[in-house]
C-alpha cells in the first residue's frame, strides 16, 4: 500500500533520510519511533507528497506521490495551524467540502466523543482541543492511508487518553493503514501492530510488537533502550 524505494532526502546537502526502503500494508497501526530530528516527520511528509525525495521513489497504491495523493492520504501535521476565521463546525464543513471521502456523520460522532463545541472559534481553542480537532479531521475520512505526526506531543494525559481511545474507536482497520510518529512510545505502545525505529535518517528496526514480545520478551521501550545507546 505504501512503498518507499531507496528514498534519500537531503536539505541543503544535509541528509535527513538515507536510502530508506519501506513497505506497509493495510490493516495495521504502525508506529514510527525515534528521537527528535531522526527523520520521522520527513518520512511522513514524503509519503503525503508535501516534500519530494532527493533520490528514490515513493508510491501509495501504486501511484507516485505528490500533494495530490491527498485523495488517498489523510495527513495530520504536527503543526497547529488552522484557518482562524472558522469555528470548529465550519472547519469540519470545509474539510468535508475538500475531500470526497470525508464522512460527516463520523466526524460528528468523533467530535461529540471528543467533547468539542462546534461553535467554538479556532482562535480561542485550547491546545488540547486543537489536538482533538485534528483527530476529528484526520479520522473522519474514509481513506486508505492515515498519517499522524506527533498526535500526542505536548498534550496533557487526559487529552492523550481521549486521543488514544479515539484512535482505537474510529480507525477502520480492515481498510486502513495508520502510520503514527511519536517520541512518547509508552502511550501508544499497546495500540501498535508494528513499529519502525529510525535513527539519524536510517531505519534500524522494523518489528511486529507481539512477535518481539514472544521471541525476545521485550517491549518497544526495552528494545529502544537497547538499540539507541
Amino acid at each position: 500500500m505504501i512503498e518507499l524505494n531507496q528514498v534519500t532526502k537531503k536539505y541543503m546537502g544535509k541528509v535527513a533520510l538515507r536510502d530508506v526502503d519501506l513497505q506497509l500494508t493495510k490493516g495495521k497501526i504502525v508506529g514510527l519511533v525515534g528521537p527528535n530530528g531522526s527523520g520521522k516527520s520527513t518520512t511522513l511528509k514524503l509519503i503525503a507528497g508535501l516534500i519530494h525525495p532527493t533520490k528514490g521513489h515513493i508510491t501509495v497504491n501504486g501511484v507516485e506521490v505528490d500533494h495530490r495523493i491527498a485523495s488517498q492520504v489523510s495527513y495530520l501535521s504536527e503543526l497547529d495551524e488552522y484557518y482562524g476565521f472558522y469555528n470548529v463546525g465550519q472547519t469540519i464543513d470545509f474539510y468535508a467540502s475538500q475531500f470526497p471521502d470525508f464522512n460527516k456523520e463520523k466526524a460528528e460522532e468523533i467530535r461529540a466523543f471528543m467533547k468539542l463545541d462546534p461553535n467554538a472559534k479556532l482562535k480561542h481553542l485550547s491546545k488540547g482541543n486543537r489536538g482533538r480537532l485534528k483527530i476529528v479531521l484526520t479520522l473522519a475520512r474514509e481513506v486508505p492511508v492515515i498519517l499522524m505526526d506527533e498526535p500526542l506531543s505536548g498534550l496533557d494525559p487526559m487529552v492523550r487518553d481521549s486521543i488514544v481511545k479515539g484512535l482505537i474507536s474510529y480507525i477502520d482497520l480492515e481498510n486502513q493503514v495508520v502510520l503514527i510518529t511519536t517520541h512518547e512510545i509508552k502511550e501508544i505502545e499497546f495500540i501498535l501492530d508494528e513499529f519502525i525505529a529510525i535513527k539519524d535518517g536510517e531505519i534500524i528496526g522494523h518489528h511486529n510488537v507481539e512477535q518481539l514480545r514472544t521471541e525476545q520478551n521485550m517491549s518497544i521501550v526495552e528494545w529502544m533502550t537497547n538499540s539507541y545507546q
Binding site: G27, V164, I171, F190, L192
Partner: peptide, 9 residues
C-alpha cells in the same frame, strides 16, 4: 479494545 486501550487486532 477501547476498555483496555489496546489495538483491536
Amino acid at each position: 479494545a477501547i476498555q483496555s486501550n489496546v489495538n483491536p487486532n
